[in-house]
Amino acid sequence: MLRVTRYKEKIMDAHIQVKNLNAYYGKQLALKDINIEIPKNQITVIMGPSGCGKTTLLKTFNRFFELTENTQLTGEVLVDGENIYNKDIDVTEVRKIVGLLAQRPSPLPMSIYDNVAYGMHIHHMRKNREEYKDGVKHYLEIAGLWEEVQNRLNEPATSLSIGQQQRLCLARGLAVEPEIILGDEPTSALDPISSQHIESRLLDLKKQYTTIIVTHTLRQAKRLADYVIFMYLGELIEAGPAKEVFSNPKHERTKQYLEGLF
């Protein structure tokens, strides 16, 4: 049996609080009694060996976990103090506030422009064409893609390179004005330079957004993290400010993982 060091200390400014969270795929327990608080406007990195439940945990934050059939969840996930699993919560509002950058870029089968405008249209966020145009430009700039695509906005999004596609997906996500950005290994399908692009965007954005990244590369975790969560076999082993966890891990498992023993 693993001995779990639960993170007890209260974070002053927690954006997400997870309470007694258990997640099941069928009968298999994927998350075991997770309790964690995630700080606002910082980058939190969830790390751990594959199959440890990091992506599952991430998917409970925007209610994507329930999209997999035959799953079950108990416990609470509070965003700004409100349980997103309450019955009267509108799931589309949750997903508007909590954006997701997927592992593989998934541009919608439409033009570059329409990809960014898509979410704004869905939520009727602008009044007229001009405002939509401005919005699209704004978010493409934030995602660091405007320079490259400003003359080809009407081309299909699939004509972009994979790295550009991922930045487009970032722009699409940001366009619905989320407060939280989730990244499920968002650079794992990208080449090193594209990965660097995404990483630097995320670092720029952390002042305005709470960012939670799942990664399996330790070096990326060290580059990005302000706050670290280490998971193993569905359990939360250790969590804390990045400096502390990386320099002085409290738990033996964390130490072994950081040393690259598994």
Binding site: L67, K96, S106, L108, Y118, G119, I122, G173, V176
Partner: peptide, 18 residues
């Protein structure tokens, strides 16, 4: 239709019907 596409749309807060 791949689930990635569906999720991309649901992920920005679209309803299933949208």
């Amino acid at each position: 239709v791949s689930n990635d596409l569906r999720h991309a749309s649901l992920g920005v807060g679209a309803t299933q019907w949208q």
